[in-house]
Design a protein around this nucleic acid. Structure first.
Lengths: 339, 339
DNA sequence: ATTAGCACTCTCTCGATGAGAGTGCCAATC
DNA sequence: GATTGGCACTCTCATCGAGAGAGTGCTAAT
């Protein structure tokens, strides 16, 4: 690892100047820096060495150097521990999150908006599914003859209810009775463990009203399947179009496609570890569409969800890391209280 | 209105050729058409007339003609009654909508996806708010000491429930009692009419448990406010970047911005009449960001929601109109059954 | 009213040119 | 031996002019 003195400093200088200007960086410019008291010729030889190691590259003979994906990787590894977010921006984040009043969906919305407006890149928030919650109760609420509403509560709140058709013969007392049995049988079971068989057993035992049982079962199957998927929110796509690397539409299209497709987002964030900030640079991305991008991500609520920033590989990594890390922490915090 | 014979035919020819090729259309090319048995010189004089009327324009002296926004408007007005969607595509739409199993949110998702993949433009679906529904019941479901879940049902289904903190002193019987009173007081009232005062009165009369009342009130205020906003789904932004007119990023950015901001979408669709297909072309849009776009929209469920396609003014209007109209009809149909 | 003919205008492409930027290498230096 | 100044070399980019091509507008003839 080329951390040693001058090499590291040059790599760092090239990366930071390139991030700032989006132009190739020449040896002349780099030599002017205070910390590197030497001539441009020396810088040139160092740069040539860095190029041999695959950290820098040339667009063409007479152009300055730009970092390779590997170069960014080494740069990022040098400073991942760095800098916290400025106080003002922390406050802004807290305020925005508070304004959502503890509602989980709103919280995720606000997080995505805040991250993208703060960093001027695109942001992705993968919101907590219900699979880590536990079952609390099921209530069948009579809605006049022939109809009921089924409501499930979990440790995390209330599942969207659903209108269910009843055989007329079911009385209010029956509904109460069925609700109670199911509630008692399933209480405390993690939603993720509500397998098909388990459901069948609990519901099947509860009653002999087959039509009703079937309706509940169908609904649960649906809603639980949906709950197993993460819900993705993407904001700030437009910022990407401002970046010089995405001026050509054929460069921008794959990225925008990836940001529109849940299955691609899932793949892009799949490699995230269960905690800490995680960075995927250019070709490190498993998703070919993100070859020109870097993803800075962090999970929150112990891996239940994730926040991420998607920008060009020429990204302001320090800020991105700080923003993502702080946001993930705040989200974990907010959700701990909410649930 | 220049519907009369040749003028109309020339306008139509220019629009359709330009939509196909994205290039200015010359008199030579137009003269070759079967229906216009005349020379290019004649076409030129007709074109000059159309230009005087503001329906065509020139990029420069020696280029062919392209339609102005007004030209598109006249063209569109000529054929708005046209062509239904091909049978195959109707089937595709029906299938996609059925696959969502009657769930309102899924339905809107599928509608947006289908419209954009069918037309290769961006699509917007504004999903039905709850304001046209009526209040049915409120249930407070005990969740162990100190907690309850509040659930409201409406004519359209179930409102997202919410966990509420209780004073310990409230018994299960109290909860039942409170639920019953509120339900009886408010039953049948349109959600849109649940004004602050009305809520206060119903809830205030129901009980002397002030903390509980306050919690319910706060929740309702929040959820009703949210329900009054339409929920927008946007799909297929990436298609816009394929269009020649959005190759330059400074052309694409405003459009993408508009498609990311709910408040802008609301404005863009605000002018829609309560039924039928509605088209807004280029500068007709109230939203400056959509100057380069046309919006083809239709409302569904009697104005409760809207579907729209957003593309360049150089749009395949026939297809867009057919797709939007059919989709709106199917959505209305599906929702009638669902609710 | 329509048409053929023609001059005119404007864009677009191509190649050449020259300036500028930055490199790589070599010989001199500390 | 690392560092440096000097210098030739290479490649890009902007500019220019020429020529081709496309399509118009006008005029005179039908």
């Amino acid at each position: 690892m080329p951390l040693e003195g001058r090499k590291g400093a040059v790599l760092r200088a090239v990366v930071e100047e390139h991030v700032r200007s989006a132009e190739p960086v020449g040896s002349e410019h780099t030599a002017l820096l205070e910390e590197l008291r030497c001539s441009s010729a020396t810088i040139r030889s160092v740069m040539a060495a860095l190029e041999d190691e695959g950290l820098l590259t040339h667009p063409h003979t007479s152009a300055g150097r730009i970092p390779t994906d590997l170069g960014y990787r080494v740069y990022v590894d040098m400073l991942l521990d760095a800098e916290p977010l400025p106080v003002g921006e922390r406050q802004a984040i807290r305020r925005r999150l508070e304004s959502s009043g503890g509602d989980v969906a709103d919280l995720a919305d606000q997080a995505a908006r805040t991250l993208s407006s703060l960093t001027r890149y695109a942001s992705v928030v993968a919101a907590l599914g219900i699979h880590h919650q536990t079952f609390r109760s099921l209530h069948l609420l009579a809605q006049g003859p022939g109809h009921a509403v089924a409501v499930i509560t979990t440790s995390g709140g209330v599942l969207q209810g659903r209108l269910i058709d009843l055989p007329i013969s079911v009385s209010d007392a029956d509904l109460d009775q069925i609700s109670r049995v199911i509630t008692q049988t399933l209480r405390g079971i993690p939603i993720a463990d509500l397998t098909q068989e388990r459901l069948e057993k609990a519901i099947g035992d509860a009653t002999r009203h087959h039509q009703l049982v079937e309706a509940i079962r169908a609904w649960l199957r649906r809603d639980l399947a949906r709950g197993s998927r993460l819900q993705y929110r993407v904001e700030g796509r437009r910022h990407l179009l401002q970046e010089p690397e995405f001026q050509r539409p054929e460069a921008a299209t794959p990225v925008l496609s990836a940001l529109e497709e849940d299955s691609m987002l899932a793949l892009a964030l799949a490699a995230a570890p269960s905690e800490g900030v995680w960075i995927s640079i250019g070709s490190e991305n498993r998703l070919a569409e993100l070859r020109a991008c870097s993803v800075v991500a962090a999970t929150y609520s112990a891996g239940g969800g994730a926040v991420a920033i998607v920008g060009p590989t020429r990204m302001r990594y320090r800020r991105a890391v700080a923003a993502v890390r702080y946001m993930a922490n705040r989200l974990s915090e907010s959700l701990r209280h909410a649930v």
